[in-house]
Nucleic acid binder design. Structure first.
Lengths: 126, 126
DNA sequence: ATGAAAATGATAATGATTATTATTTTCAAC
DNA sequence: GTTGAAAATAATAATCATTATCATTTTCAT
């Protein structure tokens, strides 16, 4: 039986609404200022639970684990200039259709990872 | 100046031709039987080098780092039944074209990760 | 108000990977 | 073929992210 926890609430609230895909470490550092005796284990424990419950998504970008409050299927773009991780609209249905053609298995989910230069960094360059 | 090393040769040879995307640990275990005093650090060091030289690819699947001798751009499929990681033909050009439409940045690379049931496991089920 | 179940905080433990360093191997110049 | 500097290795200590453990605290149905 799941019981309320102030810490879990704070972790979730710290994540919702942002699009910068923080790591567990970043969330911990930020929350620590508001809740000085928050434990790092509590952050990891709750992020795992929230992911299992489908309330947040875990993504791996360039080897690092990051968290995303957006649980709608979508992909991510990594900027090689500034390191930003940007949400990309969900083209997965179309992508899955392309990949499914001629493949003998059953594709149920897919995510794509794009790499390049983000709009901001393109502007600066030009 | 790069010098020849029997170990690096063995690591590369152990990887080429296979499609099961082994981890560094798996490669080390297999090589250890042939080269009893091979060091785990040597395996990691050389895999990093081979990747930098573009001779092998590193992929992250379900949180684990695996290695792929196929350096042509292509995607991967993870079977949730048997855990196999299967190479998928490169639809990335088409996928990139779709994703690039309406995106202000510049997409240079992309990889997709598909998840579902592989052909073999579909057969067993039916 | 009470107590069992759940969650936390502190920290030890784990697993994957990297750094360090003394020793060995490679290879260009002789 | 010998030599010596540069590169690579083996062994292992160190690091980093994450998880496990466990005593204490919090939640919440009764």
């Amino acid at each position: 039986m799941v019981k309320y926890s102030r810490q879990r609430e704070a972790i979730k609230n710290k994540l919702v609404g942002r699009t910068d895909h923080p790591t567990a470490e970043t969330l911990y550092a930020e929350l620590k200022t508001e809740m000085p005796n928050l434990s790092v284990a509590t952050v990891y424990r709750n992020l795992n639970q929230l992911e299992q419950w489908g309330e947040v998504n875990r993504i791996t970008v360039e080897g690092a684990t990051r968290f995303d409050p957006n649980t709608d299927p979508h992909s991510h773009f990594f900027c090689r200039k500034c390191g930003a991780v940007i949400d990309m609209p969900d083209e997965d249905i179309e992508i899955r259709r392309i990949a499914q053609a001629g493949f003998g298995g059953r594709i149920e989910l897919s995510t794509s990872h794009f790499y390049g230069v983000c709009p901001k960094c393109l502007d600066i360059d030009s």
